[in-house]
């Protein structure tokens, strides 16, 4: 009878994948799942702003309360993040397209050129935008001087400035996935399209664009999600009536010491982001996400 050793072998083979995934699993559990659960549990706790001590009180009321209270900021964030993401797509598609198809041997050079500004700290970059867009900054001084805008025209403090800041700061998150998507389109397939009477523009619409769709969606998610939760751009470039939800969360945690409120809003933010990813996975398959992350 050879069945016992064989069973033993099978058992070991069956266990192997789990053993192999153990380090990654522990890593995920320790650095992602546990903090996430702690954050979620805080939504049900009552914390003292003075001592910082939290007690589990199973209060479910905080979440609907803050969601209702900050509905407007959610909507603002959604709109700003959406517009900034669209802007990024429109701006970075031609750039990514050009680098992918015409970059030749200097592709990497162009990519690095695209990324160089982003080696500078996020805050500094945004502060520079504040400087650029300021009323006495180069841009507005020039425009006013040439009577291209009315004398009272200002950008800083408006939603426009926030969207511009978001779009600028998250551009690489759009450009890189787009580049990857375009770069890996099989050039022979494009030859085939030309061969089958598709002109350049038809090839673009019928072949390049559809093949880039997963990349476009990935770029959208990768830009939209962080832009949605952003709290720096609005703080520095925004005005009085365009607070984003990230700023609210930051204030709840750091100024108001309202941990349950902050955690609740964070949870909602997380759910919205997961929804986007789920939608992506449903529409385009989960395999393709990995390619861009």
């Amino acid at each position: 009878m050879s069945s016992p050793p064989r069973r033993h072998g099978a058992w070991r083979r069956g266990l192997a994948p789990y053993l192999l995934s153990l380090p990654a699993g522990l890593w995920l559990a320790l650095l992602f799942v546990v903090p996430l659960l702690i954050m979620l549990s805080i939504t049900l706790k009552t914390c003292s702003p003075a001592s910082g001590a939290c007690v589990m009180t199973w209060q479910w009321g905080e979440l609907p309360h803050v969601v209702n209270q900050y509905r407007g900021q959610f909507v603002t964030s959604l709109i700003f993040a959406f517009v900034a993401t669209l802007l990024d797509l429109v701006i970075s598609f031609p750039i990514a397209y050009w680098i992918a198809f015409y970059g030749g041997r200097r592709k990497n050079f162009f990519l690095i050129m695209l990324l160089v500004p982003f080696f500078v700290s996020f805050i500094i970059r945004t502060l520079v935008w504040e400087f650029i867009l300021s009323n006495n900054g180069v841009v507005l001084t020039f425009l006013r001087g040439n009577h291209l805008v009315p004398s009272g025209f200002h950008v800083l403090g408006t939603g426009l400035a926030v969207v511009a800041g978001l779009a600028y700061n998250y551009l690489p998150f759009t450009a890189l996935p787009l580049y990857v998507a375009l770069e890996r389109i099989d050039r022979r397939v494009l030859n085939a399209a030309n061969d089958l009477y598709a002109t350049r523009s038809v090839t673009f619409v019928r072949v390049i664009l559809p093949l880039a769709i997963p990349g476009i969606f990935a770029a959208f998610l990768l830009t939209f999600i962080p832009a949605f939760g952003d709290y720096v751009n609005q703080e520095i470039l925004g005005g009085t009536s365009n607070t984003m939800i990230g700023t609210v969360i930051q204030n709840l945690f750091l100024i108001d010491s309202d941990y349950a409120g902050g955690a609740s809003l964070s949870a909602v933010l997380l759910v919205i982001s997961l929804l986007g990813i789920w939608l992506y996975a449903r529409l385009l398959g989960s395999r393709t996400i990995e390619d861009y992350l």
Binding site: D186, R188, V189, N191, A192, A193, N194, D195, L196, Y197, A198, T199, V207, P210, L211, I213
Partner: peptide, 17 residues
């Protein structure tokens, strides 16, 4: 696309989408 010629490519080059 202006030639009355069609090609069967070495790699097939079918449209994956």
């Amino acid at each position: 696309y202006h030639r009355d010629v069609n090609t069967v490519f070495q790699s097939y080059a079918l449209f994956p989408h």
